[in-house]
Design a protein around this nucleic acid. Structure first.
Lengths: 183, 183
DNA sequence: GTCTATATGCAGATAGAC
DNA sequence: GTCTATCTGCATATAGAC
């Protein structure tokens, strides 16, 4: 696997997370990634749309993998508290690599919008599988997974805006009270 | 009151809602607003940051006013369903004038970030007041209001991304089950 | 695979006429 | 209050050398 390609994707994800798509320039991506400047259009010949779409999808896969790796072990509330810690320790520059891009492009860039759908789908399905494993029937699990995803996304927005992990902790507490999958 | 100034603010809000701050150009704002081109820097001498900050704050005031005007009458679930209809009827171009801007600027533009905090504060307080009126004690009301705000924001993100009001309807249903302020 | 140079366009902002 | 002209800078993208 090309390491330059991976470095470009990772730098792109971090910048999308921090400031969205339109504010992120290709020069900035190259600078942050440390990858060779000439390699950007070599690895991503279709330009920025391709790069952003792939970064969004890779980010969704990464988050879904973390859900699957940790949620069953520690439970939902603790999982969200872990997100809160990550948001905080990033100086509120990270948290949800999808939100800003999804909102910017929902009706203005079809290719990236489709990537966002696919990425969010991975998250929702990961939560849904967890709930079904805990005995929730599929339809109900999808609704609850959608709700959980929405609440976490919203908590990230508020925490990043206010530069405090409190809103995410509140979301963890309130969702924790619901004991999804238990009753 | 100057009508050109108001038209510029309203056009700005709509564009911020649709595509965020960085993707929105001053020329685009003038074109959409129908306001005289020469008046932008006359009414907003500090430039784009001032314009966006004022638009964000005005949007927050507008949303808070709608919460106060309708929530007590129709209840939380119906209120969210009304949001879902608005998002749908805008062709998923509208819904939350704050989210995209808040995420783009959380750590990259202090002035706009402060405007976002103020605006979100207005929403949370409006929900909190509603809950307290229904007998929830203040601390608990703040937590529930934060949770409600987060869940709605997240629902808007998912609905706009998927071009369907379903996620917001799910949020309405799930939050409705909780009967905040009732027990 | 990676480089530099460059094409083209639009961004935000300012000056000064009217 | 509103206009046009213009400054400066950066954006994405491409061409072509190495």
């Amino acid at each position: 696997m090309s390491s330059a390609r991976e470095e470009i994707l990772q730098a792109t994800t971090a910048l999308l997370e921090k400031q969205g798509s339109h504010a992120t320039g290709l020069n900035e991506i190259i600078r942050e990634s440390g990858a060779p400047k000439g390699s950007l259009y070599y690895y991503f010949p279709e330009g920025k749309d391709q790069l952003v779409s792939e970064a969004v999808l890779a980010a969704g896969q990464g988050v879904a993998a973390r859900i699957r790796a940790n949620l069953a072990d520690i439970g939902l509330a603790a999982f969200i508290l872990r997100i809160a810690e990550n948001v905080e320790s990033s100086g509120f520059a990270a948290g949800s690599p999808l939100t800003a891009v999804a909102m910017e492009t929902a009706t203005t860039n079809e290719r990236i919008n489709l990537a966002c759908r696919e990425a969010y789908g991975l998250l929702v399905t990961a939560f849904q599988d967890y709930l079904q494993t805990n005995g929730v029937e599929p339809g109900r699990a999808l609704e609850q997974a959608t709700f959980i995803t929405a609440a976490i996304e919203g908590g990230i927005i508020l925490s990043r805006t206010y530069h405090t992990a409190d809103p995410l902790r509140t979301v963890a507490g309130q969702l924790g009270l619901l004991r999804f999958g238990v009753f």
